[in-house]
């Protein structure tokens, strides 16, 4: 038994099972109040084809928007990080711009965005904004903190700035970049769902708001859990990529 427990995934599985059992018990006994349903109650949100159709359609929209937001946010972040690393004179300016974007409170900005960008695009814009910063910050610090030994090497070997950048700095920063992507992905999903609250036509965020207004507790929880599941899947997938990348690019 002890040997079996040494398997990491088995322990995780046991942990999850225990968590679900506690949840089911808490829901059935009503220990945490009427708005805390048991898992079997939440499952009723999926018990007819019509209900299931609503969730698959909504989730498809949210996932699609999140993928676009993540890709656009990552592209902008990587582009700006590269520019600020190549052109040190722009470094401070780009840093301020990035922090400025990060400091925008999406909640306050959302309704304005609806007016400017429209309800369909707003989720994507908020997703881009919240995915951007962790990716930018991680990649920029990876590019800036090149080991001094590498710089000495490129100096003594007479490497041009461009070659030192491409051959030493960028590969050295790869694990940091993937680390940023791993934090940016849940950010993109969060931004998209938040954006959907502000009157988007479809999406899990729309289901969440609708269920809340109509007090459909199981449906509300089901939608929220699907968002969490998407976030976790994205995070763990990119964590696996990060491990691969560290094995490839670091000691």
């Amino acid at each position: 038994m002890a040997r079996v427990l040494e398997q990491g995934w088995l322990r995780s599985l046991l942990g999850f099972a225990l968590f679900f059992i506690l949840w089911e018990t808490a829901g059935r006994t009503g220990a945490l109040g009427a708005s805390f349903p048991s898992l079997s109650e939440i499952a009723t949100a999926f018990d007819t084809p019509v209900k299931r159709g609503l969730f698959t359609r909504s989730m498809a929209v949210t996932v699609h928007s999140s993928l676009i937001a993540f890709a656009v946010g990552a592209a902008i972040a990587v582009g700006l990080a590269l520019i600020s690393a190549v052109l040190p004179s722009l470094e401070n300016g780009i840093d301020s711009l990035a922090s400025g974007i990060y400091a925008i409170p999406a909640i306050a900005f959302g309704p304005i965005l609806i007016l400017i960008a429209g309800p369909e695009t707003t989720p994507i814009v908020l997703g881009v904004l919240s995915a951007f910063f962790p990716i930018y910050g991680a990649f920029v610090s990876g590019l800036r903190f090149t080991p001094s030994a590498y710089l000495d090497l490129s100096g003594a070997l007479g490497a041009s700035r461009a070659r030192a950048f491409l051959l030493l700095k960028v590969p050295h920063a790869m694990p940091a970049l993937i680390d940023g992507l791993r934090l940016g992905a849940p950010g993109a999903i969060l931004g998209v769902v938040l954006g959907e609250w502000f009157g988007a036509p479809r999406g899990l965020g729309v289901v969440i708001v609708g269920s809340m207004q109509n007090v459909r507790i199981p449906q509300l929880w089901a939608a929220a859990l699907l968002v969490v599941a998407c976030s976790l899947i994205a995070y763990f997938a990119l964590s696996a990529l990060h491990r691969l990348c560290v094995r490839r690019f670091a000691w």
Binding site: P147, A149, Y150, D152, L153, L168, M174, R248, F249, A250
Partner: peptide, 11 residues
């Protein structure tokens, strides 16, 4: 040039 810290690139 060679350093005490060999400065090899792990990738």
């Amino acid at each position: 040039i060679a350093f005490q810290d060999h400065a090899l690139l792990p990738w």
